[in-house]
Simulated scan of single mutants.
Amino acid sequence: MTEYAEVIGDPIAQSKSPAIHGYWIGKLGLDAEYRACHVAADGLAGYLSSRREDPYWRGCNVTMPHKQAIVPLLDRLEIGAELIGAVNTVTVRRGEMLVGSNTDGAGFLEPLRPMLEKEHLFRTARVLGTGGAARAIVAALAEQGVVVVLAGRDPAKARALLDEIDPEGEHHAVDIAHFAEATDFAFDDREGCFDLIVNASPLGMAGQPPLRFDFTHAPPGSVVYDIVTHPVETEFLKQARAAGFRTIDGLSMLIGQAAVAFEKFFGVAPPREDGDAELRALLTS
């Protein structure tokens, strides 16, 4: 039998994780597999129970809608997942203990590291969305000293999320509709500042409503980041580039978080010497 890991969710057919992990497994010549497994909400506990008994199972990635629902079914959480309250990776320790971790924050920050290594007078991010991915993103940004303006359909939910993850932070919660209409706000001098706009919601994803964001709300020099991966080239990113902003697409976060999970599953770092160029070409072909 061959050891394996997998991704679970509902739906799951759209997941790019099997292609990413399968590519790395092939490059390294590992005797391993990475699969996709459809798991509905009412089957989550049964899934974990069956996998506990499988000696060849190395763990799973967790996608919508299970990132928070899976938490009480695990034996322990790593510190990051405990803070965030959401899990996207489950691994097996000592042959029986199921441990939840969250690699979304690390994956999200990876393309931002060169910028965040610099000194800034002020760091701010407008984050759109209040789901599981947004929780990880807010936690990662707060750790980097970024003041977050969190936008959701329910500002009270956004406020509660901020207070839960970083109660000492000077963050702000607003209605996501605030960013849909143009503003004549005059931004001050942004020299020495770091400004980020993040779509951490499903808006703009294939089959979902469009994301309404007017770029008059983006400070000059902002970096615009969309975590949506289907399509990779979202209307949000197209509009940002047309307005002259630097952009980062969802594959950056997806590949970054997968790399952390891959090492947890198989005990070896994935091959990324070409800056993921070949893998990106595979995922967008």
Rank of each mutant, 00 (worst) to 15 (best):
G105C: 04
I25C: 02
K264I: 00
F187W: 15
R159N: 12
R241T: 11
E6C: 13
D188I: 01
C193I: 01
P167F: 08
A243Y: 01
R212M: 09
V268E: 04
A180T: 08
P72L: 05
A136I: 13
V92L: 11
V62Q: 04
P270S: 03
A81D: 13
F265D: 00
N61T: 05
G59S: 00
D274E: 09
Q68S: 10
E78W: 00
F265Y: 14
W57Y: 06
A86E: 11
Y34K: 00
A158W: 07
G22W: 00
A200F: 06
G9H: 13
G207R: 08
I84A: 02
I248S: 09
G9W: 13
G107C: 08
A40D: 14
P55G: 04
I227P: 03
R76E: 14
I165V: 14
L254G: 10
I79M: 09
F236S: 10
R153M: 07
I70R: 06
I176R: 13
L161G: 09
L48D: 08
G145M: 06
R35C: 02
F185K: 11
D154E: 11
V90P: 01
R241I: 02
K157C: 07
A139N: 07
R135I: 04
V174D: 09
P65L: 03
G244K: 13
E278S: 11
E170S: 12
F245I: 10
A242L: 11
G105K: 01
E273D: 15
D249N: 15
I8G: 06
M205E: 12
L237T: 13
N199D: 10
P55W: 00
D163H: 08
F262N: 05
W57H: 06
A269T: 14
G46K: 05
D175H: 14
S222C: 06
T229Q: 07
L251H: 11
I20A: 07
A41P: 03
I8L: 09
T183R: 02
L112R: 12
A177M: 07
R135T: 08
E33V: 00
L44S: 10
G204H: 04
Y34A: 01
A281Q: 13
A281K: 12
D166R: 12
T183I: 02
M97P: 01
T103E: 11
P72E: 07
P271S: 07
R272N: 11
V138N: 14
A106P: 01
H120N: 10
S222E: 08
I20K: 05
I84E: 02
D104G: 04
S101C: 08
R93E: 15
F215G: 13
A156E: 15
L48M: 10
A259Y: 03
H171M: 03
A200M: 06
P72W: 02
P65V: 05
I79C: 09
P18F: 02
A243N: 12
V90K: 04
P55E: 03
I84V: 15
S49C: 05
E117H: 03
G9S: 14
R272T: 15
G244C: 12
A177W: 00
E119A: 14
D154I: 02
H120R: 13
L203A: 15
V62A: 05
P114R: 10
A45T: 12
